[in-house]
Design a binder for these strands. Structure first.
Length: 272
DNA sequence: TATCAGGGCCTAG
DNA sequence: CTAGGCCCTGAT
């Protein structure tokens, strides 16, 4: 099926902006990308300046993927609010034009960002993939077998040895704590969807191994709380090097997280 | 082969 | 508030 997207939309940049770990390029010619959201799988191919060929039907596109890609938000307008005196931010937004903040699965983001600490992005990816193969449901498509991200229920009997084999290292206890808290409904990730930022933040950080950075990532990339701007080592370097140690994101209010993504992409790209 | 750093967090002081 | 430790992996 063909669709048209007129606002900023660049799949390479979305995949490369560090907000997701499983989406990938599945074929180089024609260039095709694969996204997974819960049990839904999307193959999407760019076949014109603003047109795409998608593997799902219109209903799934509108109900699931449009929301996943945050298509109701106008990113072009958001880029245009950057004041000209914030040169570094402006350059980042030019470089990162096409990035969107995905609305990914809450549980998956929680576990993924717990895993992410003190790991490089390639290491995070392989670690998550092992977890999916070990505990996730297997889905057969026409061309491949795909393992979905495991639910808390599927992981409730996970033991330390198995998780160590997945490369979790010292995060094993963190993962197990998250599994238990969610499985036993001590924390209901879906029900805190509409709760205030502060409450959501406190709930998330009550999980072992979830600090400021991880909580903000989960809030931004799963709960679409775009006011959240996670500060990692890379962003900290930018703040230090280009902003004299003063956080530039706060000034962007509800768009702070979007600015953070532009900068993260920009700074990562510079060292690639 | 050895070393380094990676989208941090916890604990002790 | 700060320093040190942490388990493992990919890159050089």
């Amino acid at each position: 099926m063909k669709i048209t997207i007129n606002d900023d939309f660049d799949l390479d940049k979305i995949i490369d902006s560090g907000q997701c770990f499983r989406p990938c390029i599945i074929c180089e010619s024609p260039k095709t990308y694969r996204f997974i959201y819960r049990q839904y799988i999307l193959y999407i191919t760019k076949d014109g300046p603003n047109t795409y060929d998608i593997s799902c039907n219109l209903n799934d596109w509108n109900e699931i993927w449009s929301k996943y890609f945050d298509l109701t938000r106008n990113y072009e307008n958001i880029r245009s609010i950057i004041p000209c005196d914030d040169k570094y931010m402006y350059e980042s937004s030019i470089d990162g034009k096409g990035i969107r903040i995905l609305r990914q699965d809450k549980w998956e983001m929680l576990i993924s960002f717990i895993i992410s600490q003190r790991k490089s992005i390639p290491a995070i990816r392989s670690c998550i993939e092992k977890l999916c193969v070990k505990y996730g449901s297997k889905i057969k498509t026409e061309n491949e077998d795909i393992y979905l991200f495991p639910t808390a229920q599927q992981m409730i009997d996970a033991n330390e040895e198995e998780l160590a084999q997945c490369g979790m290292g010292y995060r094993i206890g963190y993962i197990l704590d998250a599994v238990r808290k969610v499985y036993y409904k001590e924390i209901d990730l879906e029900n805190i969807d509409r709760i205030s930022d502060d409450y959501l933040y406190n709930q998330l950080t009550s999980i072992k191994g979830v600090g400021k950075k991880v909580a903000n990532c989960v809030m931004l990339f799963a709960y679409n709380r775009t006011g959240r701007a996670p500060v990692d080592v890379w962003i900290a370097r930018v703040i230090d090097e280009f902003y004299n140690g003063k956080d530039p994101f706060y000034a962007y209010g509800e768009n702070a997280g979007i600015m953070q993504q532009y900068v993260f992409y920009h700074i990562q790209n510079r060292y690639r």
